[in-house]
């Protein structure tokens, strides 16, 4: 009976994962391996293709663009206001009246668009967290703390299926951006993604599927050692159950890889370091980039984080 309960939990979390995360690993790997027929991603590998990629996305999203047309041509306040909705695209901010961006602002504009998608991803992760049995019964302050500390780790893990050694899918799999291009962006933007590529390439060797990922994400969210938690015990109890479910899932789903559970848990240490470095980089950007504005939700999460 206990194993049956653990399998039911696994199925429940997998369903919640499918419901809340639009680009699954199955879909991402199909796109990356060219198995989606004519539906190939647009490749961004230099500044010219970055501009073309922007048009490519805008053409696909005319109704959304019309809704936000005032934000496209306006200043800082409107840029903050333009952080609305997942379909807004990967670029499309800080354009001047002629529709051409000032070239030196490209990195910042791209960074703003990434933030927009990240904020939407935080909403998706929050909905997923709420579906973990027992999560919404935790103290509300502790729910906030678990998300504040867990969400960037979850988003980092979720980048892995979108990446290979040469680049990453963005904009819901419609765009493939090369690693070399990301590396070529001016400092410190060019340094931001390299650690994620290194981590993802190693993480992908474990060959987790979407149902494994669902459990692993729940384990990360239910970390009882986050600073400031008021009531640790119920969180640890929930995590223990999900850990048992993950262990069983990996045994059944990857019978030939006996150490997979241990290997996966070891990744959590690397993950914390990557997130700490990422947050420090963002905090540095806030000080050095005068034109940078951080999305209010990401500000909330990153303030006093590490």
């Amino acid at each position: 009976p206990e194993a049956a309960d653990l399998r039911a939990l696994s199925r429940h979390l997998y369903e919640a994962y499918l419901k809340n995360f639009p680009l699954t690993k199955v879909k991402a790997r199909a796109i990356l391996s060219g198995k989606t027929g004519d539906n190939v991603p647009f490749v961004i590998h230099d500044m010219k293709s970055l501009m073309e990629g922007e048009q490519f996305i805008n053409c696909k999203q005319i109704p959304i663009q019309e809704q936000h047309s005032s934000a496209l041509t306006a200043g800082l306040e409107e840029i903050i206001g333009a952080y609305q909705g997942p379909e807004y695209g990967f670029l499309g901010m800080g354009m001047n009246v002629s529709g051409q961006p000032p070239p030196d602002a490209l990195e910042l504009r791209f960074f703003h668009s990434c933030q927009s998608r990240s904020a939407e991803a935080v909403r998706e992760v929050t909905e997923f967290a709420k579906s973990i049995p027992g999560f919404i019964d935790l103290d509300l302050n502790d729910q906030v703390t678990l998300l504040k500390y867990g969400v960037i780790e979850v988003l980092t893990i979720m980048m892995a299926p979108l990446m290979n050694k040469d680049g990453t899918l963005i904009s819901y799999g419609q765009i493939f951006m090369t690693r070399e291009f990301l590396k070529s962006l001016r400092k410190p933007f060019g340094q931001m993604m390299e650690p994620k590529f290194d981590f993802s390439v190693k993480f992908n060797i474990l060959e987790l599927d979407d149902s494994d990922m669902a459990l692993f994400l729940a384990v990360i969210i239910l970390s009882g050692d986050r600073p400031g938690l008021l009531n640790v015990k119920p969180i640890e109890q929930l995590q223990e159950t999900v850990l048992h479910s993950l262990e069983l899932q990996l045994k059944l789903n990857h019978p030939d890889c006996l150490q997979l559970f241990a290997k996966l848990l070891q990744k959590m240490t690397d993950l914390r370091q990557i997130v700490t470095d990422h947050v420090h980089l963002i905090q540095l950007l806030k000080k050095t980039e005068v034109d940078m504005c951080l999305h209010p939700l990401l500000q909330e999460i990153m303030k006093d984080l590490y």
């Binding site: 609305q84 939407e120 935080v122 929050t126």
Partner: peptide
């Protein structure tokens, strides 16, 4: 904590839609 994390709190309480975000 809730005061410092209003949007997260709203997301948890279902009072923020994707459009509000």
């Amino acid at each position: 904590l809730k005061d410092k994390h209003k949007i997260l709190h709203q997301l948890l309480q279902n009072s923020t839609s994707p459009v509000d975000l």
